Amino acid sequence: MTSTATRTDRPTATYARGTRGVHDLVLTSFVAVLLISNIGATKLIQFGPDVAILGFPVLPIITDGGAFLFPLAYLLGDVLAEVYGMRRARRAIVTGFVWAAVMSVTFLVVDAAPPAVDWPNQEAWSAVLGFVPRIVLASLVGFLVGQFLNAWVLVRIKDAFGERRLWVRLVTSTVVGEFADTVLFCTIAFGPLGMWLGGGSIPLPQLVNYIVVGWVYKVLVEVLLLPVTYRLVAAVKRREPDYH
């Protein structure tokens, strides 16, 4: 006599609709972090003396001002994808993209408007917030591709394993999404992909340094913030009535 066992414990992925909980707070925080980071990214920053190994520059570390806050955009993007699924995450990404574009166009109009006669800061304003096509395009393209990949990878892993192994999908999605984002932003804003918009590019060794440092830094921040991400994900799930 033989018996046939049927598996009933297959992993299931649960998502909230986001209509009665804290989805609005997560979404607005996500967009705010994106906009602030894009403004900060207009400044290149370097730390350390000139150090090269076999002709390749190891120091100084080259990054941009957006690095201080932008990793939080991926943390919040992880929360959106983990708790609300791909549909809500995609909507949040498109919302962030649209408002980043609106911000850029607004800066363009303000920069082009004639300054008051007694206002002495036009050149300083233009230097910091003026419309720079390469920076704007790099930010928008990098964000759009990186965040979509981040959400897609996270949701695919969750669909495969259910609620288990949260750390796997958090880290894996960040590695993929941040790599695409960093490569696109750096090569368009300061590398050969953006030269057709005008201006030159930084030397290839410095560009590689910029990409590698930015990518590794953002991934390390995500890993270090895993305890925070776990608690934030759990808190958001508890506040979504239809999650469980």
Rank of each mutant, 00 (worst) to 15 (best):
M1P: 13
M1F: 12
S3A: 12
T4V: 15
A5R: 08
T6L: 03
T6F: 06
T8A: 13
R10P: 00
T12W: 01
T12Q: 02
A13R: 08
A13I: 03
T14K: 14
T14G: 04
T14N: 09
A16C: 13
R17N: 09
H23A: 15
H23C: 07
L27T: 07
S29G: 15
V31W: 06
V33R: 03
V33E: 07
V33P: 05
L34Y: 00
S37E: 03
S37D: 06
N38G: 09
T42R: 13
L44D: 06
L44M: 14
I45A: 04
Q46R: 14
Q46A: 12
F47V: 14
I53G: 05
L54P: 01
G55V: 13
P57Y: 07
P60I: 07
I62K: 11
D64H: 14
D64Y: 11
G65M: 04
G65S: 09
G65A: 08
F68R: 05
L69H: 12
F70P: 09
P71Y: 10
Y74N: 03
Y74M: 04
L76D: 01
D78N: 08
A81V: 02
V83T: 14
R90C: 00
R91E: 09
V94Q: 05
V94A: 11
G96I: 03
G96H: 01
W99P: 00
A100I: 07
A100P: 01
A100Y: 00
A101M: 09
V102K: 05
F107C: 06
V110K: 04
A112K: 11
A112G: 10
V117H: 11
W119L: 13
P120R: 11
P120H: 08
N121D: 14
N121V: 15
E123K: 13
E123C: 07
E123D: 15
A124K: 12
W125R: 04
W125V: 11
S126K: 10
A127F: 09
V128I: 15
G130I: 09
F131Y: 14
F131N: 02
F131V: 09
A138E: 11
S139R: 01
L140Q: 10
G142C: 01
G146W: 02
F148N: 07
L149E: 09
L149R: 04
A151K: 08
V153A: 03
V153E: 02
V153S: 02
I157T: 03
A160N: 01
A160V: 01
E163K: 00
R164F: 00
R164H: 08
V168K: 00
R169N: 01
V171M: 13
T172D: 04
F179H: 07
A180K: 10
D181S: 02
D181Y: 05
D181F: 12
T182E: 01
L184T: 05
F185P: 02
F185L: 10
I188Q: 03
G191K: 05
L193W: 15
M195I: 14
W196S: 12
G198Q: 08
G198W: 06
G200P: 04
I202D: 14
P203N: 13
P203V: 15
L204Q: 10
P205C: 06
P205D: 10
L207P: 07
V208R: 08
V212C: 12
W215P: 05
W215T: 06
V219W: 00
V223D: 05
L225D: 11
V228I: 15
T229E: 12
R231T: 11
V233K: 02
A234Q: 10
A235Y: 10
E240Q: 02
D242V: 03
Y243H: 13
H244C: 03
